[in-house]
């Protein structure tokens, strides 16, 4: 066992867990943050994507001790951030996925949104190619991707100058 000092969705948490646990296992099984999905568990699918200091990474391949000084954001953190910025309910991007019907089973969605959110933060007006590039590490087995790209485009449009949170 080792105590990991983590900063997750704005909260500082000390988690005692087996040393060989991945960040994804800590999130899901120690902290109950089951929004990040365990798909392939080996870097192939992107469903476990979280942001580490704003950068999308695959939590199934991250050792928690290597991200102790960093800000980790999971899908659960987006709405928290949105509400602390004065918004209500889910974030603009989450609502855009909903409105565009950008999901069928939904398994890929948290990872897609975490990748897309990072894109919108660095580029508020992405074109279709930028979006495809940013989501190239997130697989969806259901939708065929078109509505996902549309959702990101519409969030970018609605977010305008203010970015998208």
């Amino acid at each position: 066992m080792r105590v990991f000092h983590l900063k997750i969705n704005g909260d500082t948490v000390d988690v005692a867990a087996p040393e060989h646990y991945t960040l994804l296992e800590i999130l899901r099984y120690e902290l109950g943050l089951t929004g990040s999905k365990q798909g392939c568990d080996k870097g192939d699918c992107g469903s476990c994507t979280v942001q580490v200091d704003g950068v999308p990474m695959l939590s199934c391949l991250v050792l928690p001790s290597t991200v102790e000084s960093k800000a980790i954001t999971t899908i659960e953190g987006l709405a928290v951030q949105h509400r602390s910025d004065g918004g209500e309910g889910a974030s603009l991007l989450q609502n855009a996925f909903d409105a565009a019907g950008a999901l069928q089973c939904g398994f890929c969605q948290p990872g897609m949104i975490m990748s897309a959110q990072a894109l919108l933060e660095s580029n508020a007006t992405p074109n279709r190619d930028d979006i495809k590039q940013a989501l190239a590490g997130n697989l969806c087995r259901c939708t065929g991707y078109t509505q996902i790209y549309t959702a990101v485009e519409s969030a970018a449009k609605d977010g305008g100058e203010n970015g998208c949170s």
Partner: peptide, 27 residues
Amino acid sequence: FIAGGTDINPNLKHRLLEPECLVALNG
């Protein structure tokens, strides 16, 4: 050694190696 972990971690999960200790280089 473990750097980004994107090669060694899948390999560990597949039991292609079973070291008792990993030395993380990120710091």
